[in-house]
């Protein structure tokens, strides 16, 4: 990891101080305390983290940690805002940080959502940073502020780098705190191909023809797949394959 430390951010002192302190808190596994520490140091109004695609834990809803008031979270859940919130819709598709100002405020649902958020003390400016992880999991790290438009632009310019670092750092903390070992099935290229064609509804005979191998060969690969993926049968393996984003068309 020596390469990465070659150049440091503009606000190195503040960042390393925060990272130092949150490292200690992290060892205690208190994610909320980590957020609060960053919140205070950077004068951020609120911070929230939502992790997706992390195995069984996120089947129903994302793993979430936030500093928002409980009333806002209750309201958010009650109204089913997970399906309205443009952050949840847009950020996973992007690798760029998303400024909430850029959302389409002409849309009445989105406008009402943000109006209610402001009323609940969320803040008038927001920034969401997408984080992509090693194993297909991803998360959204959002920070909110109470700033004028002009100060906001300057603030973003100054601290974007720190926020990128914090976002990834927090993501890794969350993985550790929830003891999520992202599965590494270690499938070979051939096994991935066999799994892909099974997902396309091909029988082992058909897969054998497509790949130019014997039917026995296909069965052999299937057996390996089941072992490696800890799956009961090929349908189960395909389901896991979809879940962990393993099913890409062979090139």
């Amino acid at each position: 990891m020596n390469i990465i430390k070659l150049r440091t951010g503009a606000t190195e002192d503040k960042l390393s101080e925060v990272l130092d302190r949150v490292e200690k808190i992290r060892r205690n596994g208190d994610l909320l305390a980590v957020l609060k520490e960053s919140q205070e140091k950077y004068g951020v109004k609120h911070i929230s983290y939502a992790g997706f695609n992390m195995g069984d834990l996120t089947l129903v809803e994302p793993i979430s940690v936030w500093t928002y008031k409980p009333e806002w979270i209750d309201h958010y859940r009650q109204k089913g805002y997970l399906n309205v919130d443009p952050v949840v819709k847009a950020v996973p598709k992007s690798i760029l940080p998303v400024d909430w100002n850029q959302f389409d405020m002409k849309d009445p649902h989105i406008r009402r959502f943000f109006a209610e958020a402001r009323e609940a003390g969320v803040g008038n400016q927001g920034l969401s940073i997408p984080v992509r992880g090693r194993s297909g999991e991803f998360s959204i790290f959002s920070l909110t502020f109470e700033e004028s438009e002009k100060d906001w632009q300057e603030y973003k310019r100054q601290f974007m780098r720190d926020f990128q670092v914090l976002a990834v750092f927090f993501h890794q903390s969350a993985l550790q705190a929830f003891a999520i070992e992202p599965p590494n099935f270690n499938l070979s290229t051939r096994e991935l191909e066999v799994l892909y064609w099974a997902a396309c509804g091909k029988t082992s005979e058909e897969t054998a023809v497509i790949l130019g191998i014997t039917k026995r060969g296909v069965r052999f690969h299937c057996a390996n797949i089941l072992t490696k993926m800890n799956a009961m049968n090929i349908a189960h393996a395909v389901a896991k394959g979809i879940y962990y984003n393993l099913l890409n068309p062979p090139r």
Partner: peptide, 11 residues
């Protein structure tokens, strides 16, 4: 392997 580049601020 130990110099694999994986950083929040490197794309």
């Amino acid at each position: 392997e130990d110099e694999m580049i994986e950083s929040a601020t490197i794309w």
